[in-house]
């Protein structure tokens, strides 16, 4: 049981007892965010920063997020390290805390992250005291470089953003989990609770899910399902499940009934 005791994810000096990170994008109504957080148990949620629409009386999205939940502003919209750094600084100075999800995207077809620019931004922001969580193409060498650059975790994508395709990158993510001394958060493309559970069973430290929850017909219920799946997958990982094998092995005694 030792492995189960006090199972917390520590990021930037904060302890998280829940390993589902969520996002605020694509909700049909922002008032669903708070009940979704409660149902899922998620303790960290992403937000984005954009130019205002002039004349918009929209309330700040931050007012829809309970104070107990850690904000993870992202640098979406950034196409270079420089832009990502600027967004991170603005987010911190406007009181969003020092967590930042680096997301630098130049490939507008598949929305895949630009690892080179991501590394540059990570180096600068980690030195400035940010808790840097970079969204990355799953690549072992790059995971090591992010570690050396001061990242707090690595966030390899499961499949392209918003696709619900799940763990297309499974084998590479597995290897990153194997070698990484940083927490591994599988981000993007997770479309089903079963896929989230699979990532956790593999030993991922957390998963980040936005689209699948927000675009379901019932985001509160979907959030709950993901929360349960992540907890179940984690529990299975800690239980150290037996390996798969090619041959049958009886679960009942092999002696025939009433025969010896």
């Amino acid at each position: 049981m030792a492995k189960n005791d006090n199972d917390v994810l520590v990021l930037g000096g904060k302890s998280f007892t829940n390993r589902l990170l969520t996002g605020t994008g694509k909700f049909s109504s922002r008032s669903l965010i708070s009940p979704m957080l409660e149902a899922s148990g998620s303790q960290m949620i992403t937000v984005a920063l954009r130019r205002v629409d002039m004349g918009s009386k929209d309330e700040n999205i931050l007012t829809f997020i309970p104070d107990t939940v850690t904000l993870l502003p992202n640098t979406s919209g950034a196409r270079t390290a420089k832009e990502a750094i600027r967004i991170a600084r603005i987010a911190r100075e406007s009181g969003c805390g020092n967590f930042i999800k680096i997301e630098v995207i130049t490939d507008m077809q598949y929305l895949l992250p630009d690892n080179q620019e991501t590394l540059k931004a990570t180096e600068v922001l980690a030195k400035e005291g940010f808790v840097v969580l970079p969204y990355m193409m799953p690549d072992i060498t790059f995971a090591r470089q992010l570690h050396d650059a001061g990242a707090a975790a690595v966030m390899p994508l499961g499949s392209p953003i918003g696709t619900n395709l799940g763990l297309e990158m499974k084998s590479m993510i597995k290897r990153i989990i194997e070698i990484s001394s940083l927490p591994v958060v599988v981000d993007a493309g997770i479309g089903r609770p079963s896929q989230a559970a699979q990532a956790m069973e593999m030993g991922a430290d957390a998963v980040l899910v936005n689209t699948a929850i927000a675009t379901s017909a019932d985001p509160v219920r979907a959030g709950k399902a993901f929360g349960m799946a992540v907890a179940a997958g984690r529990m299975a990982y800690l239980a150290d499940m037996a390996d798969e094998q090619d041959f049958a092995e009886a679960s009942s005694p092999l002696t025939g009934f009433l025969r010896s």
Partner: peptide, 10 residues
Amino acid sequence: IELLSFVGGG
């Protein structure tokens, strides 16, 4: 001058 706001995002 940039006037920005926090919005939904993943």
